[in-house]
Write a protein that binds this DNA or RNA. Structure first.
Lengths: 343, 343
DNA sequence: GTGAAAGCGCTAACAA
DNA sequence: TTGTTAGCGCTTTCAC
């Protein structure tokens, strides 16, 4: 592979001149510029970025840490992150942790050794000690947390308003006349799970409905988990007439459970999901769900990372995006709405 | 950040000694080893891999080029690739091209400048000029093509037997008594599309059924495309009683089309997909589909890339994996099977 | 405007 | 067994 030396030689200039024209730094005459570009062309020279990175301390690479790319939510997120990164001239190294903090730590170390310019975490844990340690150990490294808050340290966060989303979902159901509304969600220790629960309960109370503890179940943000929990909740004597699922995958699991119990959706049970992932449009009936503006969020996270690494600004900010409700066909009016907002 | 110099200083040895113990190369006494490790511990030293890479010409990074990570097929694939890469101590840089060859070229250049140790292409194009150019320009760079053949150049390929998979799908349908079987598939120029078509037609012929050209449609490997094509094909007077979809996404689109036309699956129309992606288990009824051993394929691709980069072996090989049929609930017997294999 | 030279952090001869 | 030294390919002062 041709190096800068080769270019210098064939262009009959010094390597510093080559560097200058290629990086547009310092003065160079048009004539030498031309000569250099010709040489570059001729030798098909490509800059060795690892050599450059050694000096610049800039690798144009971002790390993205997620639980699992097979999960379509993270597919959408990753695509958005990669797209904006690419727009800014960065690449992204993908890391799947399966929510395993040890695996995550390994990845973080590796990324640091490789000199990435920033790390974007999209991990559902509130108590992520890796993030805390990292932020303390390397305060100059841009760290963006996407989708959840981390307790105890200040980092840049880009969030969706989970409370509001859950509130909207629940409110929608209440306005349709539902009173017995279940909440089936994912990891109990996850930020989203608890924020959404608060929104759900808050909506219930605001309409004068007392939340029932046995209408709340939590396990994992997965189809299988939604199925198991759904089967249990829908098999109850006093089964809810509507279920607010912590995410779309759980919603899909609830569909399966309902089908097994010969309950029709939405006739016998309404369901609302969260995320507005691809699942929502693929299932039948299509799933009413809370839309997380995932593309904008991924975009913003990368923007922050890039700014942090290039401008070295350093105020930790929290940016919250507002969700919207996407109404489809998995909910229906139970009866005329008898509930009115009391608070 | 602590450098090797700092470690050398606090351990009271030379930097080459530090390098030796950290890389387990050459002789070092236990005592110095201990001292070095202590210093490393104390300073929380992490090796700067970009400096090392400059000498080694080894970045422990692989590039993975796919059309779109949002497509769940590539989600599964990417996960498998990343997992094995991680097992071997490599990271993967993800690149989404949207099948845009210009975008792909950009990525390839970037990856080369960053000195990746290999590139895995999973692009559906047979005529990918980027791959051809790359292989010619840098024959020493490990290039693995995953899931499709590239005409005109020798590269390492890991494939699924598309012909056989399509044959099995079609045969399954024929054995169920279907004669009028449609084939709705993706990009006409894609390797998979044509291989699968051949398997489909071959099965038909082997059972004495003449393929009908108007039962074959091709557009894109997407839900929407399956829906549009499905609507058209199922609206025909002589609509097929079964459809072999080029992949699961198309199969899902066919479901939607059938629903719109008030055709029941599998009562009125049977459908078989390809890939055995997550979609297959989520839709209702669950989708019978040809299972691509995607995990093993991703795994193998990485193995090859790693071997190629570390051992510098260099025989271009083609590894073909055999698909299997996963029977679920989207197909049913039309009548007693009247077809017998004639060839 | 341009070139010489130092040095980024590390590895690998080569000496000792 | 350990240290000295020469680079890897590039950027960037600092002279000229």
């Amino acid at each position: 592979m041709a190096t800068i030396k080769d270019v210098a030689k064939t262009a009959n200039v010094s390597i510093s001149t080559v560097s200058r024209v290629l990086n547009n730094s310092g003065y160079t005459s048009q004539e030498t510029k031309d000569r250099v570009y010709q040489a570059v062309e001729k030798l098909k020279y490509q800059k060795n970025m690892v050599a450059a990175a050694m000096i610049n301390k800039h690798t144009a690479t971002l790390g993205l840490i997620i639980p699992d790319i097979k999960n379509i939510f993270y597919g959408d997120l990753t695509r958005s992150v990669e797209d904006t990164a690419h727009k800014y001239g960065y690449n992204v190294i993908l890391c799947n942790t399966d929510n395993d903090l040890n695996k995550e730590r390994e990845y973080v170390e590796f990324l640091i050794q490789k000199g990435v310019d920033g790390i974007i975490f999209s991990t559902p844990e509130v108590e992520d000690r890796n993030i805390k340690e990292l932020v303390k150990a390397k305060p100059e490294l841009p760290v963006i947390v996407l989708g959840s808050e981390v307790s105890g340290v200040k980092v840049d966060e880009v969030l969706v308003n989970n409370f509001q989303g859950a509130y909207m979902a629940t409110e929608h159901l209440i306005e349709l006349g539902h009173e017995n509304i279940g909440y089936i969600s994912g990891q109990p220790q996850s930020y989203s799970t608890s924020e959404r629960q608060q929104g759900y309960e808050s909506a219930l109370r605001d309409f004068g409905i007392e939340p029932k503890p046995h209408y709340v179940m939590k396990d994992e943000f997965k189809v299988e988990s939604g199925y198991q929990q759904g089967k249990e909740m829908l098999a109850r004597e006093d089964r809810p007439t509507a279920i607010f699922a912590g995410n779309d995958a759980i919603g899909v699991g609830v569909y399966q459970a309902a089908r097994e119990l010969e309950l029709r959706i939405p006739e016998d049970v309404s369901v609302v999901g969260f995320d507005d992932s691809q699942y929502a449009e693929i299932v039948y009936p299509t799933l009413t769900t809370v839309r997380t503006p995932i593309v904008q969020m991924g975009d913003k996270a990368v923007q922050l990372a890039v700014q942090l690494s290039e401008d070295e600004r350093n105020f930790k900010e929290t940016i919250t995006f507002e969700p919207t409700l996407t109404e489809r066909n998995s909910t229906r009016a139970l009866k005329e709405n008898v509930f009115r907002k009391v608070n």
